[in-house]
Design a binder for these strands. Structure first.
Length: 328
DNA sequence: GGACGAATAT
DNA sequence: AATATTCGTC
């Protein structure tokens, strides 16, 4: 349902764009209607009062260059921007007890330019050199599917991203949690299997390490471990609701800052990065896999997971939840 | 040949 | 330390 929208959003086939461009151009004001760029729009007094100086004259070349710079910088920054946005937005966590307000449309997007970036990587392992510099025009063209010269930039696993990762791994169980599956279930645009594999490797090491040291809560040594979730009890079979998730291991979170704000799974989403036939991210009807751990506050651990059904970006129901007081 | 996971590189 | 890349294996 949402998929078609996404697909059209990322449609890069030329025809439609041409129409829209000409439509857009038709709506532009006539040259005669536009004031000269050099024309003063405010009085001289006003200008001096606000220390406004006249902008230097700009030629078409300057304007063109500036717009290219803007485009290329946007392409370069968009990923970091997205990541930062995720990091910043929820800093004021207000924990709701019931009534988890979740914006179903919230979506991760790590794609630098909104188009297929998964294939961008190492197009030129040996050659390297002026890829990004080369043809500015091709960079501006909407159809970038052939010019994959952008290098995938280093992914930062924000607490939000990691949280979703942990949720998915917990849902799958450590056995079925393999990179590709995780990647698909995380449903994050621009997230590659390699990204997940690397993170998963670290995660497994962490789990192993935690398993060895019988005690949970590394406490003082690792302040980042102030995780609100439950590392222990991954062994005991899940009480209540058993059928839905046979392996509802309580996830062992990695040392990241606690994330109190529930970050919902977005509705299944077309991942434009996926090659060819992959567009079925996940079917929400047959797989109500969305779940989240939502610690209320520091005193409460979440024993089991909250499973939510998603449909058209809305929560249909909480299947179960179970919390338990921390014994301290 | 693709996916996985461990080893290794950055 | 975190993440990416390589490489042997299935």
């Amino acid at each position: 349902m949402g998929e078609e929208v996404r697909i059209s959003d990322y449609d890069v086939s030329g025809g439609d764009d041409d129409d829209r461009v000409s439509e857009w151009e038709a709506g532009l004001p006539n040259v005669d209607d536009l004031p000269s760029l050099s024309q003063l729009l405010i009085s001289a007094e006003m200008a001096s009062a606000f220390s406004i100086t006249a902008a230097p004259h700009r030629s078409m070349v300057d304007v063109d260059r500036a717009s290219r710079d803007t485009v290329s910088s946007l392409q370069g920054q968009s990923q970091q921007h997205q990541v930062n946005k995720l990091t910043d937005s929820k800093s004021f966590s207000d924990d709701r007890d019931e009534e988890m307000v979740v914006e179903g449309e919230e979506t991760f997007d790590l794609t630098p330019d909104g188009s297929d970036s998964r294939k961008l990587r190492r197009v030129d392992s040996g050659g390297a050199s002026g890829g990004a510099v080369e043809d500015a025009h091709s960079a501006m063209r909407a159809d970038d599917t052939s010019t994959k010269t952008l290098k995938r930039i280093r992914l930062v696993w924000t607490p939000q991203l990691h949280k979703r990762f942990v949720e998915v791994v917990a849902h799958l169980g450590l056995k079925k949690a393999v990179p590709k599956t995780i990647m698909q279930m995380m449903n994050v645009e621009g997230l590659s299997r390699e990204n997940v594999a690397s993170h998963l490797q670290k995660y497994r090491l962490y789990v192993k390490r935690m398993h060895g040291s019988s005690n949970e809560a590394p406490s003082s040594s690792d302040p980042l471990f102030a995780s609100p979730t439950v590392p222990k009890s991954s062994r005991n079979s899940v009480s209540g609701g058993g059928t839905v998730n046979p392996h509802s291991h309580v996830p062992i979170p990695m040392p990241y800052q606690p994330q109190m704000v529930p970050l919902p799974y977005p509705p299944p989403q077309m991942v434009p990065n996926q090659p060819g036939g992959y567009h079925h991210g996940f079917d929400p009807h047959s797989h109500p896999y969305s779940m989240m751990m939502q610690p209320r506050d520091c005193q409460i651990e979440v024993e089991d997971l909250h499973f939510l059904k998603w449909k058209r970006g809305e929560v249909y129901g909480v299947i179960w939840e179970k919390c338990m007081k921390k014994s301290t």
